[in-house]
């Protein structure tokens, strides 16, 4: 095991949530940022106009509520994905993060933002095929889905691992690209966008850890 010592486990049937050195750090980071996102107010923006007065762009409350909710869902899913010790469960967490990311982006009513989030939605729909396909192939080949068990089995899973990595890349890995592409940093309401980046970063590191372990 490359993730350090075990502090404790939470069994849910066949799925085990494990607090190891690595996963606890990721869990605490994700939860901390979720609380920060919940507490902070979105920033307002002063947009310079070519003619006339500059105007202050404010986020309306109904949009703020939706995006904040999606950011919190995204944070909780990231925190859960840090702990889970099951291939299929991790794939479901990835999908939940992906769809929450689309939710964060899609609430902004601007054409280029909506275009980018539509393309991101297409990518994550395509990515479910390799993600769940790789889980199914791993289950067929080894007869189990638990990462703790797969660690002892020593089977050659190179192709499945490549597929799994590709699925992760399409599901959350490309999210920062779209967030940057849609100029979401300049769109008002910045703290919620940070959740996309944080979840993407943490999930990439966690996927590498899983692929090295099994």
């Amino acid at each position: 095991m490359i993730d350090g010592g075990i502090f404790g486990i939470v069994p849910f049937g066949d799925i085990i949530f494990k607090y190891s050195m690595f996963s606890t750090i990721g869990f605490v980071i994700a939860i901390t940022f979720t609380i920060l996102v919940y507490l902070t107010k979105p920033e307002k923006q002063l947009e310079a106009q070519k003619f006339g007065e500059d105007k202050l762009i404010d986020i309306p409350l109904h949009e703020l509520k939706n995006r904040r909710y999606m950011a919190i869902v995204c944070g909780i899913a990231t925190a859960g994905a840090m702990l889970t010790q099951d291939i299929f469960d991790f794939a479901l967490f990835l999908t939940l993060v992906g769809i929450a990311n689309i939710g964060i982006v899609s609430a902004v009513k601007r054409e280029h933002v909506l275009n980018a989030s539509f393309q991101y939605g297409l990518t994550s729909i395509i990515a479910t095929l390799p993600l769940f396909g790789a889980s199914a192939l791993i289950l067929a080949k080894t007869g189990t889905l638990s990462i703790l068990e797969l660690h002892h089995l020593n089977k050659n899973l190179l192709f499945e691992k490549i597929l799994y990595g590709l699925g992760m890349a399409g599901e959350t890995g490309v999210a920062p690209y779209y967030a940057a592409k849609a100029e979401m940093f300049r769109a008002p309401g910045s703290p919620y966008i940070l959740m996309i980046h944080l979840s993407s970063l943490l999930l990439i590191v966690r996927t590498v850890e899983i692929l090295l372990t099994i």
Binding site: P11, F12, G13, D14, I15, G80, T84, D89, L92
Partner: peptide, 8 residues
Amino acid sequence: TRGMDTVL
């Protein structure tokens, strides 16, 4: 038996 899956 698969615990969290149905929730997710």
